[in-house]
């Protein structure tokens, strides 16, 4: 869970909390291909929202529309309280965007990139220099500040990208696949950065194809597949929808295996590998019940593993169907 200092919003989909981002019926097609087929989104202020989906699901298109880069074919969008139709300029003043492909000027140095942002945000010269220096230090780029951005590594470019986004102190930040292509260390680094933003009360809208990432960072997750939201909720809610949790017991001796299989109810047997699978949420009580039962029959498993459902299970259950256009389930109701 993110170390958010903001209270978790208890409502879902419209209601009292002011929405930082709200979209209804978002549609976008390129030629015959419908990229977004009617998407509704609601992101309360100060929360992290993850749009999760495979390549080509329409994530980037959604970000491009919400961040005023392209116009939707249909649908209403309000960002920071302003309507996309007619008030795009006001939206732009409130948001920061870090795209999938680094939005830095490779021909000039990191520091020059930062000062360019400061100038475009009309910061006074002194303040601009100070902000640039502070952000470069915060993102560990001070040593590379005078090198052309094109010479930066992937992780450094991404950090410079976010630093540039932060120059004006936006209240809403869009991060389009912020960790795609980064090595594990840089990815964890980026997660720390995103958590830091949230701690400052910034609303973060991020897209990712990594389920782990959405689980780590997001208050709410929407799963996008073929241009439609197929599931939405907190990571916990989504995981609960998938009955994938189980305890797995492995035995080396067939007799012990059979004794255990007889003693336990509701087991899925695998006679080849001598493994038993028992549905379980993985709680201490459920585990103890299994172990007590084994103890009472006097058998001992050679290996015990607990598998809790993760977003991967959710993801494949929702998007790996033979008919991906069918809506998986209605949006969850209030908790």
């Amino acid at each position: 869970m993110p170390s958010s200092v903001m209270p978790m919003p208890s409502q879902a989909g419209g209601g009292s909390a002011p929405a930082a981002i709200a979209a209804t019926g978002l549609r976008k097609s390129y030629g015959d291909k419908a990229v977004l087929g009617g998407v509704d989104l609601h992101v309360p202020q100060g929360t992290v929202f993850a749009l999760l989906g495979p390549n080509g699901a329409g994530k980037t298109t959604a970000v491009k529309i919400l961040s005023t880069l392209i116009t939707p074919d249909a649908g209403r969008v309000r960002v920071a309280g302003h309507d996309l139709a007619g008030e795009a300029h006001r939206i732009r003043a409130a948001i920061g965007v870090t795209g999938q492909f680094s939005a830095v000027d490779g021909l000039i140095t990191g520091e020059e990139n930062m000062l360019l942002m400061a100038d475009l945000h009309h910061l006074p010269r002194q303040e601009g220099r100070r902000t640039a220096a502070e952000l470069l230090a915060r993102f560990d780029l001070t040593d590379a500040a005078h090198k052309p951005a094109s010479t930066y590594s992937g992780g450094m470019k991404r950090r410079l990208d976010i630093a540039m986004t932060l120059v004006a102190g936006p209240r809403i930040i869009f991060l389009d696949e912020p960790t795609t292509g980064l090595d594990p260390r840089s990815r964890h680094n980026m997660w720390q950065i995103i958590r830091g933003l949230v701690a400052d009360g910034v609303t973060v809208f991020l897209t990712t194809q990594y389920l782990e990432e959405a689980d780590e960072l997001a208050d709410r997750v929407a799963v996008l597949n073929n241009g439609r939201i197929v599931a939405e909720g907190t990571p916990e809610q989504l995981k609960r929808q998938i009955p994938g949790g189980h305890v797995r017991l492995r035995f080396t001796h067939p007799d012990t295996y059979r004794a255990a299989a007889d003693a336990l109810r509701e087991v899925t047997r695998d006679d080849e590998t001598l493994t038993l699978q028992i549905p379980s949420g993985g709680s201490q009580r459920e585990l103890r019940a299994v172990l007590d039962r084994l103890d009472s029959t006097g058998v001992e498993a050679d290996e015990l593993t607990v598998h809790t459902p993760d977003l991967d299970d959710v993801f494949f259950a929702l998007t790996g169907t033979t008919d991906p256009t069918a809506p998986a389930q209605p949006k969850e109701t209030a908790r």
């Binding site: 005023t68 732009r92 965007v97 795209g99 492909f101 680094s102 939005a103």
Partner: peptide, 13 residues
């Protein structure tokens, strides 16, 4: 073709 142009387009300039 540079990403920075997309950034400019999303800024209030």
């Amino acid at each position: 073709t540079e990403g920075i142009i997309a950034r400019f387009r999303t800024m209030a300039i």
